[in-house]
């Protein structure tokens, strides 16, 4: 049961964005800017960072929502996403992404946990200042989203087959207002 009177038909952050449209607008814009850009970090890389931080924060809703979105961008490669959760160091991903996930994991603990050698390692693997910036801000943003979602005890749908359907909406339309105007899709 959510701690405040939100629309019970809306899961997770959707219920909160609908509850507070004034703060929903910048939060949606931030998610769109950070997660829907493909440069030297792909959209899959960005979602994996968000998913991994959510996993570390034990936020079921964000972990599974963003895991499914990453799977869509990875053409259905669920094994890869599971391997990142289990131990990203052993996962079949680039050394650069491993070094960025290490920075993200440090950010999850606290900003001051990120040490110069974490940054050096990422730069040695070819990470640019912008890659490092975006990694830190994505990780920090998920530390906000996860606390917002769980701190108010929002509903996390337990039917796992609804998550891929929702992921498809994001993959097709991004993080616009539509995400908090629609309930979790129901599997047929």
């Amino acid at each position: 049961m959510p701690y405040i009177d939100v629309d019970k038909n809306l899961p997770g952050i959707r219920a909160l964005l609908a509850f507070s449209p004034e703060t929903a607008a910048p939060i949606g814009a931030l998610a769109e800017l950070l997660l829907r850009r493909s440069d030297s970090l792909s959209m899959a890389d960005r979602e994996l960072i968000g998913m991994y931080v959510s996993y570390l924060n034990d936020c079921f809703y964000c972990n599974h929502s963003h895991g499914e979105i990453a799977i869509c961008y990875l053409n259905g490669n669920r094994e890869l996403v599971d391997a990142v959760r289990k131990d990203y160091r052993q996962a079949p991903i680039t050394e650069k992404l491993k070094s960025l996930l290490q920075i993200a994991a440090k950010v999850q603990q606290g900003g001051r946990s990120v040490l110069p050698r974490d940054i050096e390692q990422a730069k040695e693997q070819g990470a640019s200042d912008h890659d490092i910036h975006d990694t830190v801000l994505i990780a920090a943003t998920f530390c906000m989203m996860n606390r917002y979602v769980d701190g108010l005890a929002t509903i996390a749908p337990q039917d796992m087959s609804s998550y891929p359907l929702r992921a498809k909406q994001i993959v097709e339309k991004g993080y616009g207002n539509h995400i908090f105007l629609q309930p979790q899709p129901q599997p047929l």
Partner: peptide
Amino acid sequence: TVLIAASFSMFNRYVDGLN
């Protein structure tokens, strides 16, 4: 209260995570 505390959990990490 929850969103202010959550957003400062972000701002603080952004500011210190990049030193």
